[in-house]
């Protein structure tokens, strides 16, 4: 008996929490889709096309963009850690491009003011390739690259 009452309390509690979240507007679909997915850029197949699709013009090579915890040689192409830090003031977004993947663009991060322009994730790489970090700062684009050798590809089966 007591157990049942516990369960009821739990489900009841869960429901009201969900309702609360919905009421606070956190789960409104338009909020979730606010960050639109840039299909044109993600469909591109070369670094030049990606840069063009993102409207980046001719990005400036920059030494203020650094890679951290990124290996020179990745044993497993399915899981390659990539960390990017931008020391350029006014950094608005950081994109990670992998030159020899079927689709060049891997990820775009929009960095609002107050968030440090330094983040890391893990990506797949089909083969050894250059990776590019494309940074948008104050409306201008900057780029840096690094070569990663892959011993075992992470795309295709």
């Amino acid at each position: 008996m007591d157990n049942k009452r516990r369960d009821l309390l739990k489900t009841g509690g869960g429901l009201s929490l969900l309702e609360l979240i919905a009421a606070a507007g956190w789960l409104k679909p338009e909020d979730v889709f606010a960050a639109d997915w840039n299909k044109a850029a993600f469909d591109t197949k070369s670094v030049e096309d990606t840069i063009k699709a993102m409207g980046a013009g001719t990005p400036t090579q920059s030494k203020d963009i650094t890679f951290f915890s990124t290996p020179d040689i990745a044993e497993n192409g399915a899981v390659v850690p990539v960390g990017v830090t931008s020391a350029i003031p006014g950094t608005e977004s950081i994109a990670i491009l992998i030159e020899k993947n079927p689709n060049t663009l891997a990820a775009v991060f929009d960095v609002p003011a107050g968030t440090e322009p330094s983040l890391s994730t893990r990506v797949k790489m089909g083969q050894s390739s250059n990776i590019y970090a494309l940074v948008k700062a104050d409306g201008k684009y900057y780029v840096a690259s690094k070569e990663i050798k892959v011993t075992l590809g992470g795309c295709g089966g």
């Binding site: 606010a34 891997a106 775009v108 929009d110 609002p112 994730t121 797949k124």
Partner: peptide
């Protein structure tokens, strides 16, 4: 999308090249 106190702290768009069971780390 990551939010803190209802204010966005990170928006990301990902392609399929992000690894299975994705990992992400950032600071605000």
């Amino acid at each position: 999308t990551a939010t803190y106190n209802g204010k966005p702290v990170l928006n990301a768009q990902w392609g399929p090249a992000v690894s299975k069971n994705p990992f992400l780390s950032f600071k605000f």
